[in-house]
Design a protein around this nucleic acid. Sequence first.
DNA 1: CGGACAAGCTGA
DNA 2: CAGCTTGTCCGG
Length: 576
Amino acid sequence: MTQRVVRVLPDVPAIDKTFDYLVPDAIRDQVRVGDVVRVVLHGRRVGGWVVEVDVEPPEGVELRPLAKRSGLGPSAELLELSEWAAWRWAGRRASLLRTASPPRVVGGLPPRPVPPALPPAGPLTAAALDHGRAVLRLPPTADLGNVALAAAGRGPALVLCPTQALVERVTARLRDAGVPVAVHPDGWARGAAGVTVVGTRAAAWAPVGDLAAVVVLDEHDEAHQQEQAPTWHARDVAAERAARAGVPCVLTSPCPTLEALAWGEVFEPDRGRERGGWPVVEVVDQRADEPGRSGLLSEALVRVLRGEGRVVCVLNRTGRSRLLACRSCGELARCAVCDAAVDQPGDDLRCRRCDATRPPVCLHCGAGGFKNLRAGVTRVREELEALVREPVGEVTASSDGEPGTRVVVGTEAVLQRLPAADAVAFLDLDQELLAPRFRAAEQALGLLARAARVVGASGPPSGGRAAGRLLLQTRLPDHEVVEAAVHADPGRVAAAERARRELLALPPFSAMAEVSGAGAPAYADALSVHPHVQVAEVGDDRWLVRAADHVELCDALAATARPAGRLRVAVDPLRT
DNA sequence: CGGACAAGCTGA
DNA sequence: CAGCTTGTCCGG
């Protein structure tokens, strides 16, 4: 009887190579594909995964024995999926397998609970599940727990959520219905045994025994994409996983991305139901309105602020001012050192380019007064306080907690932080509509959908809460994002956006990757000889690589040797 | 990644 | 030329 040999991928980020090891006789029959093991590599003990068993080792290499079998790891299917994802996002398998592995050693699986009988799903969700490759366009206030429940009715399901808060809501909903649920990653072993798994994006890699359906909730949410490279997207991983497993995959969103629409068939409720799931939207045309102060407090907004309810104002600019001009001579305030425009985070002026600070005095005429051409959250808070004569809270990404005030102003972080309000006002929606990113329109609509959840639906009334409203201040009242919100019809954005992207060959009509870091120049140079990709420098040591599709792009990325030095390759960059 | 080893630099 | 830094290679 010869000794068994297994192939191991070490859990060392920089090593993307497998090594062969002997299986000690004592554990001869216990080692399976996917198992987590410890091995001695180059004199040190490291973790790793068995990626193949009973292999033919290369000649002339003296094999060492496995140091230890730690426990269960990703299934063979997830191992293969990681291979695909490593190609698709130009990353290393180890980082993906780490996500697919249990947080603590798992020796064996618990018994599988008996699944309960569930009431039949609603007709729309059932149709989407039956179709198998469906985009379920549900208005912002729709109950996503129902979709999860419908999926769990088919057997052990995988439910991916963009936020932990949604994970908790969905989990509670499933448990109330008697569905056994494993929350990823703590419930790793129970999921592997065969119960419905709920989690945020990492759960795309959770084991689910006898997987029956996959659901991605709010597929448009950017939280589904990993920020560090490899920048894999839970939606795309989930869709590929479902296809390989031959089970249905349903993506839900109030405003599906073009990527989702290109992938599957759209299922949407009738007009009245969708309309009822969006709040009342009021558009304030800032061209017509003659607002005082910073120009951000329209008469319509003042009316809402003077009402009774809780009001959230959204402005995606921190600090007091992002652009100032001298009150006496009109000159723009600029940096004394490098001449760039300065902003005013507090009292002093600060250069955003070189970080120099100076007191607020005009360099041209010496006067001390400035006009605030582009007010930030801090300034608006002061103006709001003067207006409503009560304390106004401020929420930005860096502040913490939830202010107890009736009126709150903040960056988009405020929409994550506050659970409910009677009105949400976007003080300068144009900043979102005109942002220099190709996904700006989709992202702006996503922001409005998030705000819609904060204020609730327009009707029919539910939960006894009065209908909330969105107030959109803009100089582009005819923009399709504004129209989509007003008419509760996100398809308008998709249609306009599809035409634009197709014309400009932007994703999903092409594939892109952003290359940066010290090794980027050499890598970009090496890539540019590839016939099917275009390489363009887009900033200091940042390159954009484009190709007709992901096959062309990812094949080229995989075929190009990485130079020494730091190199970040972000396939499908979100903020470009 | 991190150890091994080789090639280059410094100072007596 | 010892002693040390810097760079490149490779791991079973």
